[in-house]
């Protein structure tokens, strides 16, 4: 079953002058169709301006397509009577944690969503507890958010979404402003929510390494989908990705370079362990040969 069903989407950014006359129209999405299966972990890659964030904003009705339909669990984002339900089903986390946190205490921030939905108080307390536990931030429930690190703030933002009991979370470059440990913690958290809670994750990122563990990668260019496959297949297409202003994870690139230099290594190596498995025997053999030549 598909939780997200976007079909033949067109979206324009229209620039108007002070007299409300149209100055310029920029087509951001052009006949874009994407379906996302419930429970999957999908990464969206694409250069700046390829339409990733525009697409993300369509997924909970923050913007509406000019043409085409977006269905979230079967609900049309154009149907205003379903909007609250759509936003409950599909939560969003953005790049800058400081723009998403509003309360003075962590638990109040997490409670904000369910409070707005009119959830009874005892139930809110339960949900806040539960959400903070799931993102590993329960020890900070009475802290002030502005004393947290970037990664901790992002996990509080994710807890805020979790407290709405969503089926899907869309994260638009959630790690762009974080240090390495903040990035690791956020990544681990979303993977756990996906595995343990069955939450569908749509993760938009410019860090290729973060896409390695996804079930599926969608690459966008010019408002369209240009690649859609499992990570290993996507990251085998090194030159094509470069032409799209993207890259591959460092280990994948090294494996690719070694292969180009003649070493028998397959395409699409994703992790250190995989690369080691190929190069250790080769290097050991070379070492023995070298030792033999010396003797």
């Amino acid at each position: 079953m598909n939780i997200i069903e976007a079909a033949h989407i067109f979206f324009d950014y229209v620039q108007k002058d002070e007299n409300d006359q149209i100055e310029e129209i920029n087509e951001a999405l052009s006949d874009l169709s994407i379906s996302i299966e419930k429970g999957s972990f999908v990464c969206i890659l694409g250069h700046n301006g390829s339409g990733k964030s525009t697409f993300a904003k369509l997924l909970n009705g923050l913007s509406l397509p000019k043409e085409g339909t977006v269905l979230i669990s079967g609900m049309d984002t154009r149907d205003e009577s379903r909007l609250l339900n759509i936003r409950k089903t599909c939560g969003m986390v953005f790049q800058n944690p400081d723009n998403q946190i509003i309360a003075n205490v962590v638990e109040e921030d997490v409670a904000f969503g369910p409070e707005n939905l009119g959830v009874p108080t005892e139930e809110i307390v339960r949900r806040v507890d539960d959400a903070l536990k799931k993102v590993g931030m329960e020890a900070y429930r009475l802290n002030s958010p502005n004393r947290l690190s970037g990664g901790q703030k992002q996990r509080v933002a994710i807890a805020g979404v979790m407290a709405m009991k969503p089926e899907c979370i869309v994260l638009d470059e959630p790690t762009a402003m974080l240090d390495p440990s903040g990035r690791r913690d956020v990544l681990r958290t979303v993977h756990e929510l996906n595995k343990k809670e069955g939450i569908t994750i749509v993760h938009i990122t410019h860090y290729m390494e973060e896409a390695v563990d996804a079930d599926r990668i969608i690459v966008m260019d010019d408002g369209r989908v240009v690649m859609d496959d499992e990570p290993r297949k996507i990251f085998s297409r090194v030159d094509e990705l470069r032409n799209l202003s993207l890259s591959v994870p460092q280990i994948t690139e090294l494996a690719y370079e070694l292969r180009q230099a003649g070493m028998p290594i397959p395409l699409g190596i994703l992790t250190r362990e995989e690369l080691l498995q190929y190069i250790i025997p080769l290097m050991k053999r070379a070492e023995r040969k070298g030792a033999g030549a010396d003797a």
Binding site: Q250, I251, L254, I279, K284
Partner: peptide, 20 residues
């Protein structure tokens, strides 16, 4: 310290652990 090293640094450590 909440930081890390480049992937290549870890690869070097792995190879050395394997005796290379």
């Amino acid at each position: 310290m909440g930081l890390s090293a480049p992937q290549i640094t870890y690869l070097a450590a792995d190879l050395r652990r394997a005796g290379i």
